[in-house]
């Protein structure tokens, strides 16, 4: 079986982003970009399924500008077999991303589409569920353990109440949580090898997709800052301060 893995190019999680003064967005020029951390986990999980003999091919897909190919190369260096780049300079929101992924899914017929639970730029947490809806497939979001057994899988999900296990028929969409695995480091020879692996490119028009109605961003602002507090010198001082506020 094939596994299709979503790979989004996002601002690296270590970067402290800055809101532009004119409210037009977040400054991304010259900022370090990386693969969305949840997608790295998705790639890793797909590779582990392949290494365990449960999958034959791992295909990485990104939707984004030309530069997103860097993230595809990372996925290929990690071990993905080939990659698909749906090239666009537009801002692609989850419903459109899901429609694009649906079109590729129809073409490639993977048994599992493995996506991150959320992209850490827009924190939407929607694309996997939307793709599952469009395909009328099962979804198992926020996965922390995946056991594939023939035509079904048991997936443990991290939910507010604890750990929930679902049994789902394949094909299905699974979204990854942080504790699913620890992604491998790529080694230099793998990076060299990845350069020879194929990347197929499409435009959105070529896929025959209608972009979905979009949410319009009216402005971007900095969040309300918390007042800087004080350092207290002792437990007594802390307790007195909390008592004064009526907190203890």
């Amino acid at each position: 079986m094939k596994i299709l893995v979503g790979v989004k190019r996002v601002v690296d999680f270590n970067v402290r982003i800055q809101v532009k003064a004119d409210g037009s967005g977040v400054a991304t020029e010259g900022v370090k970009m990386s693969m969305n951390p949840f997608d790295e986990i998705a790639v890793e999980e797909a590779l582990r399924l392949k290494e365990a003999g449960k999958a034959e091919e791992v295909i990485a897909i990104t939707i984004g500008p030309k530069a997103s190919q860097e993230q595809l190369r990372t996925a290929l260096a990690m071990g993905a077999d080939r990659a698909i780049h749906v090239e666009t300079d537009e801002d692609v929101q989850p419903l459109t991303a899901a429609r694009i992924l649906k079109a590729i899914t129809d073409k490639e017929e993977p048994k599992i589409v493995m996506l991150g639970k959320q992209a850490i730029d827009d924190d939407n947490n929607q694309t996997a569920q939307m793709l599952a809806a469009l395909a009328n497939w099962p979804q198992a979001t926020f996965a922390s353990k995946i056991d594939v057994d023939g035509d079904s899988a048991n997936v443990t999900r991290e939910i507010d109440a604890g750990l929930e296990t679902l049994s789902i028929d394949l094909p299905a969409v699974i979204s990854t949580d942080l504790r699913l695995n620890e992604p491998r480091y790529v080694k230099l020879p793998d990076i060299m090898k990845a350069k020879r692996k194929p990347i197929e490119t499409f435009t959105i028009a070529e896929l025959g997709i209608e972009p979905a109605a979009a949410v319009k961003v009216l402005k971007t602002s900095a969040p309300a800052a918390r007042q800087a507090g004080i350092k207290v010198a002792s437990v007594d001082e802390l307790v007195a301060a909390l008592k004064e506020k009526g907190l203890i």
């Binding site: 929101q93 989850p94 419903l95 899901a98 924190d123 939407n124 947490n125 929607q126 694309t127 996997a128 569920q129 939307m130 793709l131 599952a132 809806a133 469009l134 979804q139 979001t141 926020f142 999900r157 991290e158 939910i159 507010d160 979905a212 109605a213 979009a214 949410v215």
Partner: peptide, 23 residues
Amino acid sequence: STTFGKDLTPRIAAHLAVPQISD
């Protein structure tokens, strides 16, 4: 916007062909 809602509402939005406003 708990794990319950996050899991559920995008599935509805996609079928209704509308985007979702998260959080």
